[in-house]
């Protein structure tokens, strides 16, 4: 790897090690240098959720990119994935219990990978996004978000709930 300031630094899997500190904070050793606090950013949060992960220090300076989480050793991969889940709070919807319009709020009752939740939207045209394919991103009035990875792949009852809203 050259020290070129204008090039993207891609970490070799053997150069990185992630773990969790006693306080529950994500930390790691990069190129042999320990960092007590690290932050991870997805470069393509929609397209590549476990690839091209930008590792930054607490101040937000990029230290390098992990090309693919799966290349890392088990422990590091697990912590990195966990950290991604914390930082990118985007529960995946596993079931749509109901979509109701009550007066001018749309109330969604959902089962997600992180437990059941409820989303309220002021309208559908601004709070539902279709980033492509069959993906849907749902945003709550207060900014909470959930993701439907592929609405066609949901069970038939959930799809039934969605017929008139997608």
């Amino acid at each position: 790897m050259s020290g070129d300031l204008y090039d993207i630094r891609i970490f070799e899997p053997k150069d990185v090690m992630f773990s969790r500190g006693t306080g529950g904070v994500f930390q790691g050793v990069l190129d042999g240098k320990p960092y007590p606090e690290l932050v991870v950013y997805r470069a393509f949060p929609f397209l590549y959720t476990t690839q091209y992960l930008s590792i930054r220090d607490a101040k937000g300076e990029e230290l390098g990119i992990v090309r693919d989480l799966r290349e890392l050793d088990e422990e590091s991969a697990k912590e990195l994935e966990q950290e991604l889940q914390f930082r990118y709070f985007l529960p995946r919807v596993t079931r749509v219990d109901s979509v109701k319009q009550k007066s001018d709020l749309w109330i969604w009752e959902l089962q997600t990978t992180l437990g059941p939740t409820r989303i309220a939207m002021r309208n559908l045209h601004e709070f539902m996004q279709f980033p492509g394919g069959n993906r849907i991103i749902l945003t709550d009035i207060n900014g909470k978000r959930c993701e439907i990875a592929d609405w066609q792949a949901l069970d038939s009852r959930s799809r039934q709930q969605l017929t008139d809203v997608v």
Binding site: Q27, P36, D140
Partner: peptide, 11 residues
């Protein structure tokens, strides 16, 4: 070192 106190959604 840093310690996590609580986590929360954007709301």
């Amino acid at each position: 070192g840093p310690v996590v106190i609580a986590r929360y959604t954007a709301a």
